[in-house]
Structures are given as structure tokens and as C-alpha cells.
Write a protein that binds this DNA or RNA. Structure first.
Lengths: 344, 344
DNA sequence: GAAACAAATGTAAGCGGTTGCATTTTTTCG
DNA sequence: CGAAAAAATGCAACCGCTTACATTTGTTTC
């Protein structure tokens, strides 16, 4: 009687078994191998489940079967739309396969990344998605020691032989630089994201820097400013840039958010884009096309990447092999913010 | 010898106990009640943990202690910046307390929301964060039956006595309408989000509609268009609106993304904002201030809300009471996109 | 310094499932 | 129709950790 209170709130497989007049083993098989159960037995069980409102306890299942239907991901932050989008579609993909995605944020901090990886491992994740290549060695060691299948994402460096599915940021940076150079720009500045512990930002900027230098228009040291992922800081950096070099004709921005800030600041300072000065972005987040002028940027298929990473990682987990590296192509989206160099 | 292979990969509390020459109970207490353990014993244990690289199995812990340090949240989508921001800060807050946040997306679909709630319950979450008030009854029943502490978020309706921490969207909609009316606008249109199963969008629009009607400038039926959360659709809806009523002087948008699309379209059609036509947003996402002109909008403290929800929900879980409803104040941010009504 | 009490630790029974192996039931087929 | 093979189900030992209760060790008191 009174013990039913508990049972009502959280019926167990035991309860289901009792009501359906079968053993718990059969109930368990009802879920894991429905084909191996007689139709009439299955109906009894499924009715009992219905009646009791039974929901299997995934913790117990994970413990007993020593595998969890959970994949973990540690992203820098969900506030960055590219990660939010990628994670969202990865999750959607995984959910279709009854896999849960457990997301944690590191806030771009390798120490926190380590903690989060540890937390995810403690939760028994079957696989791990990490962002980029830069991280503490102990983080790698932990993953190695636990033999957790993993995959790096948003990055692709041919020099790196870790499993990775992402974009070749260096070459994409160079490609955008080429577009800029093709329009005759010679006085160029760079608005970078924070590069410390961020290989994506590093590669993007380096790709562009190298391309500019190779074309004989190197970017001066004081024409490169690093800012965190934030409109306002980008705007004030833009102001600084324009004060230092009033003759700039193009700003290469390492991401769209920074570009948006720069665009805004240009407007405030009365420089029209792209007539007086050109600005390019990176990522092609949704916002890029509603800005005025619409942002010329590098399109990265973040959602596709998320899906692909989910698919490949799951495959790797199930088949027990490593994820095969994949370089997802980028493209340059020419909109209005990049124009020909004025006075040339 | 050979069984060590397994042990090396996933050392258990048993292994730690053996190495530290104590019982597993003591190892367990080392984590749960460190104060109750002699210093020298603690040191032996902590050394063993270090040596083995032991990480406790949270699934086993949850099972044995029948409580999990996990809180679940079902959001419509992380692609919407307001949820990404709110969830991010809620997660940060919870992580500080060693609580894991398990996030799932419903894609604005009540059926999927139900599935996700079921999934989270299966994972044994100690508490649940839901968005808004509109959902299937069976979802409510499931939560009720499982006695999972929960909290609605992003909404606050005084008529609703469920635990809720969020914003009074109706009154915020009315407040923005008041600003619009105060500037003399009389030919007003509304660009709404999809209101079906979305109480936030519904309330915002209704609040505005009622305010306009009360002021004697009701919005015509064909001057209200519903669009999904998307720039381009919003832009084309804006075009339709302007075709139907070329004399509109103000567009009330139910969220910033839609407003951005409208702004863009106004620009394309050569209507300058706010001189020819005013546009207002809702949410004050980061983008709002980099648009040109900067968007006048309703500021909602999404991050604060996320933190507060995390704090209160955790408190409710730990103390076993309900979350006390909380109405988080909004404010109107006057920027450039709302101006006086022209020709008046 | 022994009794009395407090603190630290150990013992062992689960938590809610899974699964190898044994057993029972059903189907197949000569 | 009965024996052999196949299919379905049951039994029971875990999975890794927690915790009530028992036991041991340490401390305090007079």
C-alpha cells in the first residue's frame, strides 16, 4: 500500500515485469531486441508500460550495459552563433538515432575545457566532440587514457593527423585576402579575434597575413588589433585603427561579429562602405546578410559540419574506429561590403 | 595481468580503495563528506586517485544515491540567440555548483518537447526548465507524475500559477506600443513571430494590438503578418506589408531578427528609417545595436533570466519546494529606428 | 589509566537495469 | 505424432557506487 507511493512515481522494469507477468529480462529485451519477443508477450509488456507510465532509467542502463547512448561536446560558448547552430544540428541528427548530446562550454578557457571533458567522461559519454586543436596536454591524455573516441571540429589542418571535421581556416583566410587584393587594396588592416588558444582565429589571420605579405602589401604591426567576440569592442578597435591609419581602404575581419562592429563604427565615423572603405567578414552567420551594406564574407557551412560530425562520430563509436578527417569546403560570398579600392 | 587492461582504462572506486588500502565506503565518503575522513587517509586516497586517474562514474552514483546532479532544459532551439544566451549563463551558474545542465531542443514542436522531456526524465534529471506555457497536457502530466521540480521560463503571466521566471510579454508589447503611439504613429503594421504554440509571441503581439486598439488606431487584419524566426521571410513579409499599405509609418516587430529583416527590406525599397518609416524590435539581442539604424527595442535580460532560473530551480530541487514565480522587469531601449510619425 | 563517548572506517545490501547461460515453449519435419 | 531444432523466456550474477548499521580506533574525562 504505502510502498506504492514510491512505485507510482518511478515505476521500474520490475514493476512492468510483474504486471506483464514476465521476467525483467524479457522487459529488457523488449527494448533492446524487440524482434526476439513473441507478439503477445510484447503486447502485454507494452500495455504494462503504458499503464504504469514506465520510462527506463538510462543511468542504470548505462551502468549495466557499460555503454551510454550519450555523446558529449565541449564548445567555447553557445553565445557564438556558429557553435549554437552547429551543435543544434548535430543534436537534431543524434536525437533521431536516440542518442543524447551533452553539451558543455569552456568559455575559451583550456582549464575549463579540461574540467568539462572530465565531467563528460564521468557521465560516461561514448564519444566526444571538441572544438579546434589547441588544448592542454592533460586533456588529450585523459581522453587517450579513457579510450574515448573523439573528433575535433571547426578546424582542418592537413598537418594535424587527429580526427577532425572542419574548415581549413588558413586557406580560407588567404582566399578572402585574395579577393581583397584583387580589388586593388593596398592599405589594409586586420581585426582579429583573440588568437591565444584559438587555432581557428590564428589560422584565419595568418592565412590572410601571409597572403597580403606575399602580394607585397604587408600589414603593419599596429594595423592588426585583436578583440574578443563582441560588437562594441570591435567598434572601438575600428576607431583606433582609423585613427592610426586614416588612409586604410580595407579591413579584414576574422569573424562576422567583429565585422559588424567595424561596419557600425565606419558608419558612425562617416566613412561609407564600400565606397570609402571595404570590410570583410568570416563565417557568414545569419546576421551578415541583413547588415547594411550586406557583408562580404567567407561562408562556412556550420550546420552541415555539425551534422557531419554527429554522423561520423557516432559511426566511429559504433564501429570502433577513428573518425576520418574531413575538410569541408568554404566559399566566398560576395555581397556589398567589399568594393574596389578608391582612388586607384 | 590481463584484466588490468580494463582497469587501466576505467579505474573504479574499488581500484582506488585497494591502492589506498581502505574500503570503497571510505572512498565514497572522500567525495561526499571529506570532513569525516582522517587527514592521512584522505591523502592516501587522493594519491591513489591521482595515480590511477580515477574519475567517478556519475551514472553509478546517480543510481546508487537515487539523485542526479543534473538539471534538464528543453528549449525551442539554440539557434535563437536569446535561448543560447540564457542557457549558456544558466549552465555556467550550475557548473559552478557541480551541476550538469542537459539541454534538448524541441524545434518549437510540442510533440518533440514531450519526447525530450521524457528523454530528460529517463536520464534522471533532478529538475526541469521549460520554455513558455504552451505544451501538451501529457507533458505536464508526465512531469507531475514523476514529481520532477520544474520551472517555466521566458514567460510570466500573472494568470498562471505555475512556477515561472520570465518576462511579462503582454505588458512589454503594450509598453512598446505606447512608445510608438507617443510619437504620433497611426498607420501601424505588425510583424509577428509564429504564435501557434508560442505564448511569448502571442502575448507580445496581443499586448501591442490591444494597446493600439485602445488608442483608437487598430491594426487591420491584413496589416499583421506572421513569419518564422528568419531574416529573409521577414524581409519578404515587409515587402508585402508595404505593398498592401504604402502609407505605413511604423512596423511593430515581435522580435529583433524579424525587425532586422524588415529594416533591411525598408532599405532595399528606399524607405529610410526612421524618417519615412519606423521599425521596432523585441529582445535586444546583441545584433540590435549594430544594425543601421540601431534598433529601438524591448530589452529583456536573457542572461540574467538564465542565471536566476538556474539558481531558483536548483534551490527548489535541493529544498524540495516549488519555484516562486518571478517577473523580471523589461525596459525599452530607445535607439534610432523609432522616430516621430512623418507629416504630422 | 580505564571507562565512556566520539570519530573513523568497514561490511554488505541494494540502486535499476543487462546479459550469459539454463530452461521452457513452440515450431519444424521425418 | 514425437523427436530434434529453434525461439522465447527465466535465472541470477553483476555494473560502480552509496549508505545504514556494525565495528574499530582515537579522544576525553575524572
Amino acid at each position: 500500500m504505502e510502498e506504492n507511493k514510491e512505485n507510482l512515481a518511478r515505476p521500474t522494469a520490475q514493476d512492468v515485469a510483474r504486471l506483464a507477468e514476465v521476467s525483467t529480462a524479457t522487459v529488457s529485451r523488449f527494448f533492446s531486441q524487440p524482434g526476439r519477443i513473441r507478439k503477445q508477450t510484447a503486447e502485454k509488456i507494452s500495455k504494462a508500460i503504458e499503464v504504469l507510465g514506465y520510462v527506463p532509467d538510462l543511468n542504470a542502463r548505462a551502468l549495466a550495459s557499460r555503454r551510454a547512448d550519450v555523446i558529449g561536446a565541449v564548445v567555447p560558448t553557445l553565445e557564438n552563433a556558429i557553435f549554437a547552430e552547429g551543435i543544434e544540428s548535430m543534436q537534431t541528427w543524434l536525437n533521431k538515432r536516440s542518442i543524447t548530446l551533452l553539451v558543455a562550454s569552456s568559455n575559451y578557457n583550456p582549464d575549463r575545457e579540461y574540467q568539462q571533458v572530465q565531467r563528460l567522461i564521468a557521465h560516461g559519454v561514448a564519444g566526444l566532440l571538441l572544438i579546434g586543436t589547441a588544448r592542454h596536454d592533460k586533456t588529450r591524455q585523459l581522453i587517450q587514457a579513457r579510450k574515448v573516441p573523439y573528433c575535433l571540429s571547426w578546424c582542418y589542418r592537413s598537418s594535424n593527423d587527429e580526427p577532425q571535421i572542419g574548415f581549413d581556416n588558413y586557406s580560407a583566410g588567404a582566399a578572402m585576402a585574395a579577393e581583397i587584393l584583387a580589388r586593388g587594396h593596398k592599405r589594409i588592416a586586420v581585426l582579429s579575434g583573440v588568437r591565444d588558444w584559438n587555432d581557428r582565429a590564428t589560422d584565419r589571420v595568418q592565412g590572410a597575413l601571409d597572403a597580403f605579405a606575399a602580394a607585397g602589401v604587408p600589414v603593419a604591426n599596429d594595423a592588426l588589433i585583436e578583440v574578443t567576440y563582441n560588437h562594441e569592442l570591435a567598434a572601438s578597435a575600428m576607431e583606433t585603427l582609423l585613427q592610426r591609419h586614416s588612409d586604410l581602404t580595407c579591413i579584414f575581419c576574422a569573424n562576422d561579429v567583429v565585422a559588424a562592429g567595424a561596419l557600425r563604427q565606419a558608419h558612425i565615423m562617416g566613412r561609407s562602405v564600400p565606397e570609402d572603405i571595404s570590410i570583410t567578414g568570416f563565417d557568414d552567420i545569419a546576421m551578415a546578410q541583413v547588415l547594411t551594406p550586406a557583408l562580404t564574407t567567407v561562408r562556412l557551412r556550420h550546420k552541415l559540419m555539425g551534422e557531419l560530425a554527429g554522423e561520423r562520430l557516432l559511426e566511429a563509436v559504433e564501429l570502433g574506429h577513428k573518425v576520418r578527417p574531413e575538410n569541408i569546403p568554404y566559399s566566398i560570398v560576395l555581397r556589398d561590403s567589399l568594393g574596389d579600392c578608391p582612388n586607384s
